[in-house]
């Protein structure tokens, strides 16, 4: 049998991979501003639902971090909305977390982007599940339970989607802890 040269055999695959890789990088680079603008619009439109009493939001001055300030009709600060992201079960999760003006209580949670398993993990976007986060105090991290929550800082996982539930909670806990440190340190206006 003739000895095969694997690299020579695969030249088309290698060439296509490089071409597609370059092409996709170009597509991503050219569309990113538009996609980011869509996400920003989505973020701002969610603020009234995430922070009760607010009618609009604006970007807050928070140094390196991105934080949105929720404002009521008179322009007073009613709370904060922090974007947070991290690894989910399938892909990156992007969340928005609403907090009250002192950062002491979570007022709402919204899933901006997810690619979790359809029918199981994607239930993290369901309002009934997300609403479990509303009203939680932020001095203790939130704990996910597989059964009915008993302590005030516990929420119930989605059946069949423990990793997705854990991921959302871990991302939210980390983001809230960081925000509280920043807010206490006077870094957010």
């Amino acid at each position: 049998m003739k000895k095969q040269n694997y690299i020579a055999d695969a030249w088309l695959v290698i060439l296509l991979s490089l071409l597609f890789g370059g092409g996709l990088a170009g597509v991503q680079a050219s569309l990113k501003p538009r996609i980011d603008a869509n996400k920003l619009g989505d973020t701002l439109s969610q603020i009234p639902a995430l922070v009760p009493g607010s009618t609009r939001g604006e970007k807050a001055d928070a140094g390196e971090a991105v934080v949105y300030k929720a404002l009521d009709a008179a322009g007073a600060t009613t709370g904060w909305v922090i974007p947070a992201s991290g690894q989910g079960f399938a892909d990156r999760l992007e969340l928005l977390i609403g907090l009250d003006a002192t950062g002491g209580r979570i007022t709402g949670l919204y899933v901006l982007d997810q690619k979790e398993t359809p029918g199981l993990g994607d239930n993290i976007t369901a309002k009934a599940w997300r609403d479990q986060y509303a009203g939680k105090a932020t001095d203790k991290p939130i704990v996910v339970r597989k059964t009915k929550p008993e302590a005030p800082n516990e929420i119930q996982a989605i059946t069949g989607a423990t990793i997705s539930s854990d991921s959302v909670t871990a991302i939210a806990n980390a983001a809230v802890a960081k925000f509280r440190t920043d807010l206490a340190g006077g870094g957010i206006h």
């Binding site: 996709l24 538009r34 996609i35 869509n38 989505d42 982007d113 997810q114 690619k115 979790e116 398993t117």
Partner: peptide
């Protein structure tokens, strides 16, 4: 490669549908 292009195009120009169809 083409599916990724389609996904990005939807996210850029039809954001609501992109969110609804998700994965």
């Amino acid at each position: 490669a083409f599916v990724t292009v389609a996904d990005r195009l939807l996210a850029a120009f039809m954001y609501d549908m992109s969110k609804q169809l998700g994965p």
